[in-house]
Design a protein around this nucleic acid. Structure first.
Lengths: 234, 234
DNA sequence: GTCAGTATCAACCAAGCGGTTGAAAGCGTC
DNA sequence: GACGCTTTCAACCGCTTGGTTGATACTGAC
């Protein structure tokens, strides 16, 4: 705070008859919604606090009141995004399905989630531009994730046991590949559209892509490896 | 231009004995190099023209002299990046290799290219944030790409003919998947590192990932499809 | 040597922007 | 009704930034 500023503010005109609305919970959520839209459209550096306030329909000072500054607002948006996807992932209940159906369920979830929540893709891209410095100071994010890694490891093991899978995939590598296949076509849809002169989000195309991704992952797990995974060349 | 500005500039002090260096070609390249580094580190919105000038070791006005404005500078960086990768891709000479070796060569090229040229990944991410508005106004970018699509289509066909491949993959989908697998782990390495608590760019890990990507793509092509690709659910 | 154009320079400017300030309205408790 | 705290408001501020300006040095042609 600038403590040495002399008082100098002129008293402002009184408002008209309309009273103010007071609902701090809703105000906070509206700011987060507006911020999510603005940050995903323009990135942290390109987003404008004024625009966020306008989109939220609130006074700009409220953003500083609830979130301290732009960066912390961004961090709050990111955390809420992670919490949402993990909540939905944890609800998948993959252990109740056969290994192959579990994998299908997992892939379809990730694929459909990115298609429905494009903002998430844009936020992650931007967070990587900033070297994940907001995610790094958030304790809740890694904890949310490790359950999914273990779940995936169990699915792989169950598939090896019942013979539907024939290769012992590394769960981290597999997770990254599934995320890659589900994510990249959306994150890079604009440059890919320029290159291939197609609309990647046309609905038939999306469905074909989901099938393609599923086939690619399952055929990898079903096939006998040519060499042990993770073998090191020395 | 502000035509109504009165003359008011004080004559500046003469420089010391050192003369100016004049080499427009080198100056332009140095600006592009500096801009590439600054735009890939901070994005278009976060990058500073002053910083680009400093990194290039030139007067800021030169940026406007050669590139008109910040956006066109960004567009020039992007075009040069695309030109570089296409030039290297076109030098691969995949038609001279067996289908399987051609695919390996293609995958390894894309993988190693992103590992060596991280700026390219960051630039593409940023360009997608801006809906590829710079790439869209550039006529040279799509032309560079269509040769690779055709080359990939030939490789797929040759593989089907000699039996090393068993599925008629769509070349655009395949290209997107290969790019996905080669690109995402780098573009999202910061958030993935937070989530999995690993260093994805550790050299053993990179090599394992390249092998994993190769295996995933080849096993997909080798396997007999469970349903025809591109089948539409009606 | 002059000239015109090119390449480069230091300083400047107007607008935008993140964040702050003094104040008012609302609300629950006493 | 008073009070203290919370929530909200309009206006403001200092700094940053993309871009501009008038000028100078360099260079090749005549």
């Amino acid at each position: 705070m600038n403590d040495d500023r002399p008082p100098g503010r002129s008293p402002r005109a009184k408002t008209g008859g309309a009273g103010r609305v007071r609902d701090p919970e809703q105000t906070r959520e509206r700011i987060l919604d507006a911020a999510r839209d603005e940050f995903s459209a323009k990135g942290l550096s390109g987003a404008r606090v004024n625009t966020i306030a306008e989109r939220a329909g609130v006074n700009k000072q409220l953003i500083y009141y609830y979130f301290d500054d732009k960066e912390r607002l961004y961090g709050a948006v990111l955390e809420r995004a992670y919490r949402d996807i993990r909540k939905q992932e944890n609800a998948l209940d993959l252990d109740a399905l056969s290994p192959e159906d579990a994998l299908r369920r997992f892939i379809h979830f990730n694929f459909d989630y990115t298609v429905k929540n494009r903002y998430f893709v844009a936020l992650l891209n931007d967070e990587n531009l900033h070297k994940a410095r907001h995610a790094k100071v958030n304790d809740r994010i890694p904890a949310l994730q490790s359950t999914m890694k273990r779940t995936l490891a169990r699915v792989i093991r169950r598939g090896l046991e019942d013979g539907s899978f024939r290769r012992e995939a590394d769960p981290v590598e597999l997770y990254i590949s599934i995320a890659s296949l589900c994510y990249f076509f959306l994150s890079n849809r604009h440059t890919l559209s320029v290159i291939f002169n197609v609309d990647l989000l046309e609905s038939d195309r999306i469905e074909a892509r989901r099938d393609h991704v599923t086939e690619m992952v399952l055929s990898y797990l079903r096939s006998v490896p040519a060499a042990p995974p993770g073998q090191h060349k020395t």
